[in-house]
Every structure is written in C-alpha cells, then in structure tokens.
C-alpha cells in the first residue's frame, strides 16, 4: 500500500533562494575555499525551506554551488537524509540496528506500521506521518529509539510511542 505525496507539491517556480535564507546561504559559502564544498549545507538549507529536494530545488543548489546538475542529483541520492519526495510533517525514523534490535526495535516498528497503516517509506494520507527504518542513530544505550524529524526519542516502548504520537499533530 502506498500513498500519494501529501504535503508539498513540486513548485516549478522555485528559481532562487527566498530573501529570508540569503544570510544562511552566504554564510555557508563563506566557510569553504570553493563553492562545491557548500553543496551539503546548501541542500540542508533547501530542505529546511521547502521540506524536500524537488528537481527545481536541486537545480537551484547546482547553480549556487556552480556544479553540473547531474552531479548534484547524484550527491543528493547518495545520502539517506535528503528527501527526494515529500514527507509528512512528522518523519518517524526508527533505528533497526543491532543494539536497538536487541531491545525490541522490530516490535516497535511493527507496532507503528499497524497503528499508522503505513509501511517503510510511506506517508499517511493526511500528510501527518512518514515512517522509515533507519540505521544506528548513536543512541544505542537507550534503545529502541527514533528520531522525529531531528528530535531524539529514546527508551521507547509501545505505550510511550503511543503517547508521543498523540502530541504530534
């Protein structure tokens, strides 16, 4: 079962950075001796602004970093944290690696799948949640754990995760 993207449609009008992001973009570029090195920081700024890296957004990153477009697309697909499709408002990223697995990550993930009615990589029809299996988050002593967007939630079990989901509107 897979659902259509729910949050942001591709905005073909994205041509430039909004004025509110100019300072961040210039700051990122100033940290390195060449523009190429700013490609990851630029992608992060873009993802903060638009939620995901659509083709027009990646073209903007390519122009800013002065890199060929295909190369920027190749870089974006290499890393797992760049969203190449829209994601829900709350991106649930559940660690499935060994230490968390020893503490019940598989069970937690199945619980989330059932409760939300979606599987790995899918988004709820209302655009509220995207569910994803991820690898070790450096929270191994407090597993099972997940990141919701960038926030860490640790020592989880079904009850705690249910209570957490209530607060994520």
């Amino acid at each position: 079962m897979s659902h259509a993207p729910a949050v942001t449609a591709i905005d073909p009008e994205v041509r430039d950075w909004p004025a509110s992001r100019r300072v961040e973009v210039d700051e990122a570029l100033s940290h390195y001796p060449n523009r190429r090195s700013a490609v990851l920081p630029l992608m992060w700024i873009a993802q903060r602004e638009w939620g995901w890296l659509s083709p027009p957004v990646l073209r903007l990153v390519a122009r800013t970093a002065e890199l060929p477009e295909p190369e920027v697309f190749g870089i974006a697909t290499f890393y797992t944290m760049f969203n190449l499709r829209p994601v829900g408002r709350h991106h649930l990223q559940v660690c499935m690696t060994i230490s968390c697995s020893l503490m019940g990550a598989d069970r937690l993930f199945r619980h989330l799948e059932r409760k939300l009615g979606i599987g790995h990589g899918e988004t709820t029809p209302d655009g509220r949640f995207t569910l994803r299996r991820v690898e070790c988050l450096a929270a191994c002593g407090r597993g099972p754990c997940m990141q919701v967007n960038f926030d860490y939630h640790e020592n989880l079990d079904e009850a705690r995760v249910d209570a957490l989901l209530e607060t994520l509107t």
């Binding site: 920081p41 992060w44 890393y79």
Partner: peptide, 10 residues
C-alpha cells in the same frame, strides 16, 4: 573552526 553537517552515510 566551522561545523559541517553530513547527511546520512556510515
């Protein structure tokens, strides 16, 4: 000194 954020790749 600057910080630089990766993007998910062991």
């Amino acid at each position: 000194i600057h910080t630089h954020l990766g993007a998910g790749a062991y």
